[in-house]
Design a protein around this nucleic acid. Structure first.
Lengths: 214, 214
DNA sequence: ATATGTGAACGTTTTCACAGCA
DNA sequence: TGCTGTGAAAACGTTCACATAT
């Protein structure tokens, strides 16, 4: 039924996880999985999996489960990964270069087509088949390369300014590793990847446990 | 009032953000902030900030706002960052070494006291004042160094096994960069840091916008 | 006058439980 | 029989609005 409309943010967050699990299942030659099996691999429960998938359409078969290949195809489509997404890395320090060499992207629908840094010593050198460019004419270069997603691994002090430039260049999605909140116009999505914050959340749970032990 | 008890997970997630904003305010010699000003820096709203902080206690002054220094002290205490937390990096590939050299931790209450890798060529070499150890006797080394938090930057195929070993060594908190769900016993907390998943979520929003343009 | 702290209202997400279908 | 898809219920999170304090 259900003409698809709204997909809740919490569901969107889980879709890449389901996709990953299904691709793993594919590699194990598993052809059909039920919601409980998917949930097991993903770390949720069957009801959640079924509700989540139901926001996208009716991809299961009652009494059987989900055909792995077909569900993978649907998820890839919903996540917009049919054509590879063009991404840029701004800030080629340690984290930036780690991202550049992280295999997990190429395999999963994202391709790094441009890399930028402010350091003149780095500019002009190559990383794979991509030449590191100056941040001087950032927005023009972003526009020229048709970059859709920018990963910002620049110092916090310049992140806001860099964000404005990539947006001026046409970027509509930003993965921000700098520990600052970015203010962006409507229609631009930001995801915050703050590793220190993650560790501090873990630390909170450690001290909670310590408090409980008293 | 309120004898403090439960702090909702969503609130816990925002506490490190507030702390970061307050430390920035300190460096700007701002002595008092109200909830709206904190919210502005953090990317939320005043009501949210007040509710969140109210789960921890009554740290504000009516008619005035929050004393920055004292609120920083309270947050540091709640996040368990008074004594520096001892962390280990397991897997010294590109991402692992990027984390090792990421300045953001030392400043924010977390110290990397041990680094592990399976590659014999890396074992024995130094990164700063830490010697890279073999993953051979991982759990013993984790126990010996009193590691509380483990960052896993190992291949997905071995993440579950490595996770079991660090837990055997006494680790109660894991930041997992491997794209697999880890099954852990009660009392152990895992945070998942899946960069490819973040990018795929951004890609979903891009295709949503494309769908809307039709 | 001003801004916190908080119940109550509202909105969202998860879980339940079962009708509907292979 | 077995498992999906989904309304309804329960749990959870956010926003409102105002009494309360300085």
């Amino acid at each position: 039924m259900s003409q698809i409309g709204y997909v809740p943010p919490t569901t969107v967050q889980r879709l890449p996880v389901y996709l990953r699990c299904l691709i793993l299942a594919q590699s194990q030659r598993r052809e059909v999985l039920n919601s409980a099996q998917i949930a097991d691999m993903a770390g949720t429960n069957g009801a959640q999996v079924r509700k989540d998938l139901s926001y996208l359409g009716e991809y299961g078969v009652r009494g059987l489960g989900y055909d792995v290949d077909s569900l993978v195809a649907h998820l890839v489509r919903w996540l917009g990964l049919e054509k590879t997404r063009r991404a840029a890395i701004v800030g080629f320090g340690r984290l930036g270069s780690a991202l550049r060499n992280y295999g997990g992207f190429q395999d999963r629908g994202i391709s790094v087509v441009a890399v930028f840094d402010a350091d003149p010593d780095k500019i002009g050198s190559k990383t794979g088949d991509v030449t590191i460019e100056s941040t001087e004419h950032l927005s023009e270069a972003i526009a020229r390369e048709n970059v859709e997603i920018a990963m910002l691994t620049v110092p916090a002090s310049v992140a806001e300014e860099v964000s404005a430039e990539v947006i001026a260049g046409g970027v509509k999605a930003i993965l921000n590793f700098a520990p600052v909140h970015l203010e962006v116009p409507d229609g631009v999505v930001v995801r915050q990847a703050d590793l220190a914050a993650d560790l501090q959340i873990l630390s909170f749970h450690l001290s909670e446990a310590e408090r409980a032990r008293t």
